[in-house]
Design a protein around this nucleic acid. Structure first.
Lengths: 145, 145
DNA sequence: CTGTATCCTCTAAGATACTG
DNA sequence: CAGTATCTTAGAGGATACAG
């Protein structure tokens, strides 16, 4: 008896589900491929920052998101949390060496995004444009009549 | 009348919401900081791939996720979609030059993840450990009794 | 094989209120 | 100020069935 492609695929998926924990590389890759991780890491690029500083630096970041992202980064040994016990508590976050090594790459992504945003925006426009673009070729020889 | 920090923050958030569209760089950065984008881009690293190939290469990717991620990458001009009209239709996807330029960075992330997965796993273990870790230092001079 | 359409579930994430 | 705890919701994403 032969398996259909669909069945084989199902098998693969099952095996995958069973062994997800066993592939820490992919797990980690997925963990850092996240919008909030990216933004928080970048916000920490020039040194120690307080919780409130980070919120200012990352418009749109809720306090909850910020806390949970930072907790997760702390757990992974990418940021350090420094609590100063005072009347209003003060907490500072800073990248660990491991965190800084990742930051380098995230920084490259940021630069890539800045360099390519115009082209991408243009590409989106063209793609979304309902019109098939009549005179697209600038040098089109449309003098054929 | 002075604003509280909370109010100022609210202002910032409002302004942010109003002008989100105006920051294409961040928009793009967020778009590429995504688990599925990362995985699909990596799956395309060594050349043209069919839809079904990609599913095999990315265990856990549903057909729906795959299609929608590819559509979005196509829209951004990062991948090209090649349809061969035949009895069973055949579609191939490949990175555009712009896509390949991004792939380089994503590849660095993958390598970083592989290099650091052990340390991160260790960090997690230590972090999650309910026990404060008694004999943590390997050379601890615990002969003090 | 590739892709669309539906339905359905579950989680990410915001809003709010409260503690130390 | 930093953080936790609830409640709530929009949207991501899976499962399934079907079409070209």
């Amino acid at each position: 008896m032969t398996l259909t492609a669909e069945q084989e695929r199902q098998n693969a998926q099952d095996h995958y589900n069973a062994s997800l924990d066993l592939c820490p590389a992919r797990q980690l890759l997925e963990a850092i491929s996240s919008k909030w991780v990216t933004l928080v890491m970048l916000a920490l690029e020039d040194g120690q920052q307080r919780h409130s500083d980070l919120r200012k630096r990352i418009p749109g970041a809720s306090q909850k998101m910020l806390t949970s992202t930072l907790r997760s980064l702390e757990r992974d040994g990418l940021v350090l949390r420094h609590v100063t016990v005072a009347v209003p508590v003060r907490t500072d976050y800073e990248l660990t060496p491991r965190g800084r090594s990742l930051l380098k790459i995230i920084f490259d992504m940021k630069e890539w995004a800045e360099e390519n945003m115009d082209d991408v925006a243009a590409s989106r426009l063209e793609h979304d444009s309902p019109r098939p673009a009549f005179n697209q070729r600038k040098d089109s020889s449309l003098h054929l009549s």
